[in-house]
Structure formats: structure tokens, C-alpha cells
């Protein structure tokens, strides 16, 4: 057999397997059950408008708060980890290793229930607010490592050039190193943002008032209420509507950054 014939034959087999698999799924799936349980039009339309005005809105608000909080705390930790003062480095290292090593769900649970009871602390926004603080604390640990790596990726010559022009360490960091680090960390931080959007679903464990519900909590309540899984599909759709444009936007930003480099 000629090599070209063998290649064509092999590719034909791959296509055949694919078509067989699709046919099997189509023929074997219980379309009636899927439609009534997951794609019930009445239940679906019942989700609106609250799924947007309350649930999706809260998901976005929680994400933004957690991201900005995590970014500020993460930047502080990254600078501490690069500090010439050893105790700052120790504290940052312990913090980062601790919170990257723990499940976010456990930290949220601890902040929402254990810490308020132990210290007689009334968290702002109730248990959901406490959960959000936990999310900030966890995401800061991840972002700190990303930011530190970004700062260290700026070539040493940049810092040397700035210092040799007489700029002090503070201005060197703010005007020369950080602006370049921002470009380096934009893609990984966006991943962080997308992960955070999905991690706001963990807040369901904190328990929420009706007006505080984010998408996952909202969908869970819907599933119980209608004894039907369609609310989950609606919530999934909302998540995708939020996350997909975001990843597209970042791809475009990166391209623009690369051009100006």
C-alpha cells in the first residue's frame, strides 16, 4: 500500500468512528426526558427577569469586588514577597502557601460560620459578605504569585536604566517596572478573573438572602421549586454569556499589546 493511500484510509477510519459515535448518541439518548427535564420552555421563561436582574447581576458584582480586592491584596503580598525586609517575605510566603493549599470552599465556610461564632464578629453583608471576604483572601494568594512572577519577568536592565537616571526605588517600581509587569500578567490575571466568576458559585455554602443570590444559588433554588433541571441550564447559559466575551476581549487586548511592543 502506498503511504498516501494508507494515510487516506486512516483518516477515513477516524471519520467513520466519529460518525458512529454521533449516531449512537442521537439514537440512544432519551430526547423526550432531556427536553422535559433540562429544556422545559415554561420553566425557562419563569427564570426571567430575576436571573438577570438579581442572579447574574450579583455574580458580576461579587466577581468585581473579589477581583479588585484580590488584586490590591495580591499586589501588596507580591511587593512584600520581593521586599528586602525578611519578615515581610516570611509573612507573604506563609500567607500564599497557606491559602493556595486550602480548598476555597473550606475557607468560605470558615469565614461565613466558624470565625463569626468564635470571635462574635458580625460580618458586613451577613454570611454572604463573609464568604466574599474569604474569596478575596483566597484569590489574593493566587494573584500575588502571578504578579510577583510578572514583576520578576521585567528585565533587570529596565530597573538598572531607571536607577542610573537617578530615579528612586519607588518611582522605578511605579513608572517603569509595574507598567511592564501589567502587560505580562494580563493574560494570567484574566484566567484568574474567569476562575473567580465561576468560584463565586462557592458562595452558595454561605447561605444568602433572596436578594443576595448569585447564579448558582438561584438555579439551585429553582431546581427545588420546579422539581426540574431547566434552571441549571439557564444559569449555565448566563455564565457562558459572561465568560466567553471576556476571553475574546482579552485575546484582542493581548494582540494590541504585542503590536505596541
Amino acid at each position: 500500500m502506498k503511504p498516501s493511500t494508507r494515510r487516506r484510509l486512516f483518516r477515513g477510519v477516524l471519520y467513520a468512528i466519529f460518525i458512529a459515535a454521533v449516531a449512537a448518541v442521537v439514537l440512544l439518548a432519551d430526547w423526550q426526558a432531556i427536553q422535559t427535564n433540562f429544556l422545559n420552555p415554561e420553566v425557562f421563561s419563569e427564570q426571567f427577569p430575576a436571573i438577570i436582574t438579581t442572579a447574574a447581576k450579583n455574580t458580576v458584582v461579587y466577581t468585581v469586588i473579589a477581583f479588585i480586592g484580590g488584586l490590591l491584596l495580591g499586589l501588596t503580598l507580591a511587593l512584600m514577597k520581593l521586599s528586602p525586609v525578611a519578615p515581610y517575605r516570611w509573612v507573604a510566603t506563609i500567607y500564599i502557601e497557606l491559602f493556595r493549599g486550602l480548598p476555597a470552599l473550606l475557607v468560605i465556610f470558615g469565614f461565613a460560620f466558624a470565625i463569626p461564632i468564635a470571635f462574635q464578629w458580625r460580618p458586613p453583608g451577613g454570611t454572604a459578605g463573609a464568604g466574599l471576604i474569604a474569596l478575596i483572601i483566597v484569590s489574593a494568594a493566587y494573584m500575588a504569585e502571578t504578579i510577583r512572577a510578572g514583576i520578576e519577568a521585567v528585565p533587570a536592565g529596565q530597573r538598572e536604566a531607571a536607577r542610573s537616571l537617578g530615579m528612586n526605588p519607588g518611582w522605578t517600581m511605579v513608572s517603569v517596572v509595574l507598567p511592564q509587569a501589567v502587560r505580562i500578567v494580563t493574560p494570567p490575571l484574566t484566567n484568574e478573573l474567569v476562575i473567580l466568576i465561576k468560584d463565586t458559585s462557592l458562595l452558595f455554602i454561605a447561605g444568602m438572602a433572596l436578594s443576595q443570590r448569585e447564579l448558582t444559588t438561584f438555579a439551585r433554588d429553582g431546581v427545588s421549586q420546579y422539581a426540574n433541571a431547566t434552571p441549571l441550564v439557564a444559569a449555565a447559559l448566563m455564565y457562558l454569556i459572561i465568560t466567553l466575551p471576556l476571553t475574546q476581549l482579552v485575546a484582542r487586548l493581548e494582540k494590541r499589546n504585542n503590536r505596541s511592543r
Binding site: 529596565q158 517603569v176 507598567p179 511592564q180
Partner: peptide, 25 residues
Amino acid sequence: MVFQQFNLFPHLNVLGNLTLAQQRA
């Protein structure tokens, strides 16, 4: 000081490179 690898600030244009340290330092 002039370096072998130039070490211009890539995020600033030429004028920005020349004015930054004048203003900051």
C-alpha cells in the same frame, strides 16, 4: 549611563523615555 542593550522603556514613546526621569528625579 548608556547600556549595551539600550534598555529603553518599551511602554513609553521616545519623548516619554526622555522626560520620565527628568520629571521624577
